[in-house]
């Protein structure tokens, strides 16, 4: 009886647990925001340090931090660091219109997650949320809420240490 309960508890806890720092992240395939017929996979970016950002054009904080991400990607463009955006907008055009204003050179890799699979998988606690993933696919840090200048400085230090710089 006790064993059954323990197993049930363990199962329930696992089913509802959010990915923790140190966990291996699962691979995903989603359409390219700029070309919905083309599917992008997270495996295309294997071996890179990744900042996965879950965002939407209706979220003020998400729009606020986007110029910082463009700058960050520009700064690390020569290294194995990639920012992956995943928009959960109902209408992909609103996300594209916003990004066209901020990221004219399209330096940020953009996925389109209509079904909100990533926020559901990551048990996203707030919008925006960013996940720093190392080159081996391990979750290194979680940022809930928009990234400001202070947290950006800390993030840069972490990225540099992951890149071995």
């Amino acid at each position: 009886m006790k064993k059954v309960l323990l197993v049930a508890l363990f199962l329930c806890a696992n089913v509802f647990a959010a990915p923790q720092i140190g966990d291996n992240v699962t691979d995903f395939k989603l359409p390219n925001l700029y070309n919905l017929n083309q599917e992008l996979s997270s495996t295309d970016f294997k071996g890179n340090v990744i900042l996965l950002n879950l965002w939407a054009s209706w979220c003020g904080g998400c729009k606020e931090e986007m110029p910082l991400f463009v700058e960050l990607q520009e700064e690390f463009k020569e290294s194995n660091f990639k920012i992956l955006l995943s928009s959960i907008d109902k209408d992909p055009q609103s996300a594209i219109s916003f990004l066209n204003g901020v990221d004219q050179n399209r330096v940020l890799n953009s996925f389109y997650d209509k079904e909100k699979t990533l926020p559901k998988a990551y048990k996203c606690m707030g919008m925006p949320s960013s996940y720093l993933i190392d080159a081996n696919g391990k979750l290194v840090d979680i940022f809930i809420g928009s990234i400001d200048e202070d947290s950006l400085a800390k993030l840069k230090i972490k990225i540099k240490s992951l890149l071995g710089k």
């Binding site: 049930a8 508890l9 329930c12 089913v15 509802f16 879950l54 939407a56 209706w58 979220c59 003020g60 959960i88 907008d89 109902k90 909100k116 926020p119 559901k120 996203c124 606690m125 707030g126 919008m127």
Partner: peptide, 25 residues
């Protein structure tokens, strides 16, 4: 078992998750 499963789900049933707030925004 039902109590455990339902209590796990209840949060999802009652709360609007942050990524579901497009219309509220």
């Amino acid at each position: 078992l039902s109590a455990l499963v339902l209590s796990g789900c209840s949060d999802r049933l009652v709360r609007v998750m942050p990524y579901e707030k497009e219309y509220f925004a």
